[in-house]
Computed example of a mutant assay.
Amino acid sequence: MKQSSLFTDIKTLDYNGDKLRIARVASGLSLVDVGKELVVTRQYAHKLENEAIPSDEQLAQLASLLNVKEDFFFSPRKRPIEVDQCHFRSLRSSTQTLKKMIMAQVEMFDDNFLSLLNEEVDFPEVRLLEVCDKDIQTVASIEGVAEHFRRELGLGLGPISNVIKLAESIGCIVVNLSEADERVDAFSIYNGRPIIVRNTAKTSPCRLRFDISHEIGHLIMHRGVETGCRITEAQANNFASAFLMPRSSFSAEFPRMRGQYFNWEALEELKVRWGVSLKAIIYRASKLGLITPEKAKTGFTTISRSGQAKVENGDDRLITEEPQMIQRAIDMLDSYTWIKLMKQSGLNESTLINRYRLKTPKPHLVSVQ
């Protein structure tokens, strides 16, 4: 535990309308929604996020509406998150409103909670490769990056038992975000410390592992690069495939075809062993030349027509990985430090519980009657 530094009186700071905007966007509310709550016009609600200062009564209303403490509106934005810093793995149906909401929720977590928690608990050192543009121009070069990273971490060539635990061990913060829906697969940002958002709407343990590996790829290859285009997404997918399924060991274990047909029983066993989806296995086999593109297409069609588009055979044999590092850090805090941390964060405990799926620390000492 580090020496506490939670005694700053943030009420001495000026009102910050930008923090009102962040809290509003994180809650998925519009200026009209805020105006209705305060019984003011949309225009005045907009002014409150700029030059106007709310009354004491309005502050109390805003804090209740946005589920924060009033002190939240008097804290600075220490590490603002901008669009060009973010890596979204999202479907086309996702909206800018949804993306902005997720960005605001991550900023609130990072700026108002994680930064304070980091003063109390030492997190692992960040261990991510430094690569240059020439290292990721071809599929073969990205394969080399993934293999190099495995060697750096001492992973060998076998399956990775727990991808989230691995990400946390190399200094990445993996956090749940309950309000992200299926239109956003994953999200990551390197803003002081790498953060990866785990979308709790996802039910496939294999897709989750691939999503986390995909985001690790972004954090390694695309630091300072705006992503989301076809090229950067393909690069991150190629990294995830190579990272999760090293070519030499995967090629040796890929089951032979039964004439013109896939050996689906053997493929399911391979899936469970490596923790990757049947689609990912077939895609990887095609890219490595173990099967033809035509055979891969046939395999994808079979999976889709058999009702396995979202839930595949073998998913029930795999555990769904959960982040643990932040919760363990919270559990280390004594009650006094926790109360002080929450006060300075400006967040309510219900926000941590419901939005980020965290639990408050249990008392370390219990009186005995």
Rank of each mutant, 00 (worst) to 15 (best):
A186S: 12
D84V: 09
P293T: 07
H46C: 04
P205G: 02
T138Q: 05
I326V: 15
I170A: 01
H364M: 10
F243V: 07
F187S: 00
N313S: 14
S55N: 09
D18N: 14
G171T: 04
A285I: 01
L98K: 13
E49I: 04
K134L: 09
L31D: 11
F109Y: 15
A242W: 06
S277T: 10
W338V: 09
S93P: 00
T298Q: 09
K36G: 05
L208C: 03
Q308S: 06
E152H: 08
E120W: 04
T298N: 07
C229T: 07
I220M: 02
M245T: 09
G314C: 11
A52F: 13
N50C: 11
N199L: 03
N238G: 01
H46P: 01
S251H: 01
C206H: 06
M257G: 03
C132M: 05
F149H: 10
E233V: 12
S335T: 15
L31N: 13
M1E: 08
L65Q: 10
N16C: 13
E70G: 11
P255I: 02
L267R: 00
G224N: 06
L166N: 00
I142N: 04
F300E: 09
D135Y: 08
E51Y: 13
S5W: 09
Y336R: 13
T8Q: 13
I319Y: 11
E215H: 04
T41P: 03
L31E: 11
V225S: 02
K271E: 04
A201Y: 11
F113P: 04
K11L: 08
Q260S: 09
E215T: 02
L62I: 04
